[in-house]
């Protein structure tokens, strides 16, 4: 690939832990995590819809957090733990969300689906960790949820949180239903990632913050 090593290196040896398996190879610095997965590791489950972070089809979990893999240079993520749609389940056992998507017919063409699934797994973890969204009511003023407590995934919450994943087939209502079905067990979800060492996941919240916020 690169036969011009007399110049400063424009490629590097990069290790990516994908779905629990380390992959080490010489990688063009321009190669994104998305292209590394699709073109070099043969993991084509992660999709390229826009290549600019504007559609969410390439969403994967990096250290347990959802991210647009099209905007990540692989070289900048040497050593990272990535979970793709192929690794959502546990071995032969599918992630319940995958079955819920089939059951609810939460897709048509299926192209945005892997990104929707990874994003949804991220949403469940984020909500469980108490991360607010644009539509989360602030604590206080009749809102009993203390800051940092898990956020109940209402349909409005799911819709807002899943808005980074465009579905041109318009399967949103069914996607929302499928995720809502998972919401009950959100507290038990770990982000779907089998990250172990080095996994950051969704950070917990610092303690010592007054429970009733005033604004």
């Amino acid at each position: 690939m690169d036969d011009h090593h007399t110049r400063p290196a424009t490629s590097s040896t990069v290790t990516l832990h994908v779905n629990g398996t380390p992959h080490t190879q010489t990688t063009d610095h321009r190669t994104t995590v998305l292209d590394l997965l699709r073109e070099h590791l043969g993991l084509t489950g992660t999709k390229k819809g826009c290549d600019h972070g504007q559609c969410g089809a390439c969403t994967v979990l990096v250290e347990g957090r959802r991210a647009n893999s099209c905007l990540l240079f692989a070289v900048a993520h040497d050593g990272a733990h990535v979970t793709t749609v192929e690794g959502l389940g546990e071995g032969e056992r599918r992630h319940p969300l995958q079955d819920a998507f089939v059951e609810r017919d939460a897709f048509q063409c299926g192209y945005c689906t892997p990104g929707q699934l990874c994003s949804a797994v991220g949403v469940l973890a984020e909500a469980a960790a108490g991360h607010p969204s644009h539509v989360t009511p602030p604590p206080g003023a009749g809102e009993p949820r203390p800051e940092g407590a898990p956020v109940p995934l209402t349909r409005a919450e799911i819709r807002e949180r899943m808005s980074g994943n465009i579905c041109r087939c318009g399967a949103y209502p069914h996607i929302v239903e499928a995720i809502e079905e998972m919401g009950d067990v959100a507290g038990g979800m770990d982000g779907g990632a089998r990250n172990t060492d080095g996994a950051r996941g969704v950070p917990g919240n610092p303690s010592g913050v007054p429970e009733e916020a005033t604004r």
Binding site: G45, E86, Q98, D99, V102, F107
Partner: peptide
């Protein structure tokens, strides 16, 4: 249910 549903949700359906 869609015949290719399991494949599409597992990332196995190839485009």
């Amino acid at each position: 249910s869609r015949r290719e549903g399991a494949a599409k949700t597992a990332g196995e359906a190839r485009y």
